[in-house]
Nucleic acid binder design. Sequence first.
DNA 1: AAGTGAAGCAACCGCGGCGTT
DNA 2: CAACGCCGCGGTTGCTTCACT
Length: 267
Amino acid sequence: MGRATWFEADGTKRGEWTEEEDQRLVAYIDQYGIGDWRFLPEKAGLRRCGKSCRLRWFNYLRPGIKKGKFTPQEEEDIIKLHAILGNRWAVIAQQMPSRSDSDIKNHWNSCLKKRLEKNGIDPMTHQPIVNNLTVKTPSINSECGGSSSSSSGSARLLNKIASGISSRQHGVDRIKNIFSDPRMTTSINGNQEEELRKDHGNTIATDDQEDDFLMWDEKEMRRFMEETGVMECQTTSYNDGVYNSCLDFASPYGVYETDQLDDYLFR
DNA sequence: AAGTGAAGCAACCGCGGCGTT
DNA sequence: CAACGCCGCGGTTGCTTCACT
């Protein structure tokens, strides 16, 4: 069902993958593992660019990848994670290892987003839409004075934080730690607390201030999230490779409470 | 049965971040 | 420290299938 096949001037093949190409890629990675994507196609006997091979592997061929319909539980988790992380599909996908980021993104764009809109929820802010205006809760969304319902200062800030978390030096394990660490302490210095108060109050963090947030460690990040009411203490865990969702959000950056989400999704 | 639009899926494109030189 | 190249990510496009008229 993919795109038609064509060839670049240098002979590189583009478009839909054949079964034979899939087998070659899988066989090569099974034997040698993932190395340098630049040289992998040639070594594997494929006339593809490395980027195309990487995409095919991660989105379709890698072991454990699940295709087909999303379960209601998966859809619920995607929506909840999106309410916190925004369009950070790679981070969301790392919380749902059996699904690729591309799969999740496609399902969101083609299905969940429209379903929420249809049911009166703004898919960007996760707030109810009333008369074409997103309802503002007495949270950071409104208090920060964002002029747009889809890109408030806090929303930008959250995305920046999520971006920082998802960067290579942090990784998803840090998110899991933040979500599940039961020993939240309050070791935060005076300057940072002042920043929190300002942001939680009626000022918008400047870009420089936002960058400062990215330097925080888990405790500080968690403190910030709780301070701003972004989320309650969450836990997600993996047992024997099985994804267990223990999400139970009470987030002002999103309207969902566990027993209400089904209404928004499936009514 | 044919036409049409929506939905879903797979792949490409462009950009930003990071590491290397 | 700047330039360069690669990788990964998010957005977009193109194609097929499905549902409805």
